[in-house]
Amino acid sequence: MNAYERLKTVRASDRKMGSDYVNAMFTDKVILCGDRRFGEDPAIMGGIGYLGDIPVTFIAMDKGSDLADRMRKHFGCPMPEGYRKALRLMKQAEKFHRPVVCIVDTLGAYPGAEGEERGQGQAIAENLFEMMGLKTPIITVVVGEGGSGGALALAVADRVYMLENAVYSVITPDGCASIIWKDSSRVEDATECLHITAEDMVKYSVAEDIIREDFENFDVMCAGMRDRILHDIGELLPLSPKKLLDGRYERFRKIGIYDDGETK
C-alpha cells in the first residue's frame, strides 16, 4: 500500500479503536476519569490495568464506536482536559513507579473555540515538558493516525512503535494540501511529500520498530504487542531515574537534519 492508501485505511470507520487495544492487552482494568481542573474528555480513555502480571497505567485515544459515541469523543480529537487527564494519570503512575502505555490514534487535537479558550496549546506544551521529566517508563504505540502535536502529547516516550499501516505526521495531509496548493483535494500528493509511513518513522528515528498487523487474529496480534511492551518494561523499569530520563532526552535530542555551517 502507498502512503495515501494507508491513510485511508487507518481512517476507515471499521478500523480497531484505542479502546479495542486496551481491552485486548490489559486485564483487571479500572477506568479513571477527569482532569480535576475542568472536566472529563472521553476522547482519551485512561486507567490502570494488568499487562501480563504487572499493573500499568494505560492512556488511549479513542475515536468512538457508533455515531453518538463519535460525536461525544469529537471523532477522537482530544480537548485540553483530555491531555490534562492524561498528564494527571502519568503523574500518578510516576508516584507508584508504574509504567505508562499510550495508544495514539487521532487526526489531531480538537480545533475548536472551547479548546482554544481552555488552552489547547498550553495543555500540549505542558505534557511535552512534564513527560520529558517523568520518572517512570513511557511506551507509545501509534495504532492509526498520529496527528501532529495532538499525537505528540502522548508520544514523548522511551520507545515508540508504529503499526504497519499507521501514519504519523506534522500536519494532516489535507491541511498541508490546502496550504501548499490551495487545493485540499490534492491530499494524495501531500501524503507523499510529508513522508508519514511507519518505514519513514523508523528511518528518521521517530519510532523504534514496526508492528505487523493481523486483524484477522486481533487477539494474537495484541498478545504480541503486550509481550513486546513487557520486554521493554523489563529493560526500562530497573533503570535509575537519571538513566531513564537521559535516554529519553537523547532519543529526541538526536533528531534533526540541518547544516551547522562548520562542516564543508
Binding site: L128, F129, G133, S148, L152, V156, C176, L194, D200, R248
Partner: peptide, 26 residues
C-alpha cells in the same frame, strides 16, 4: 508553527526543545 516542509522531523523539534527547556528548568 512547525515547518511542514521538514515533515515529522519538524514535529519532533517540539519535543527536543521541550526537553532542553525542562533540563534548564530542573
Amino acid at each position: 508553527g512547525a515547518r511542514m516542509q521538514e515533515g515529522i522531523v519538524s514535529l519532533m523539534q517540539m519535543a527536543k526543545c521541550s526537553g532542553a527547556a525542562r533540563r534548564h528548568s530542573d
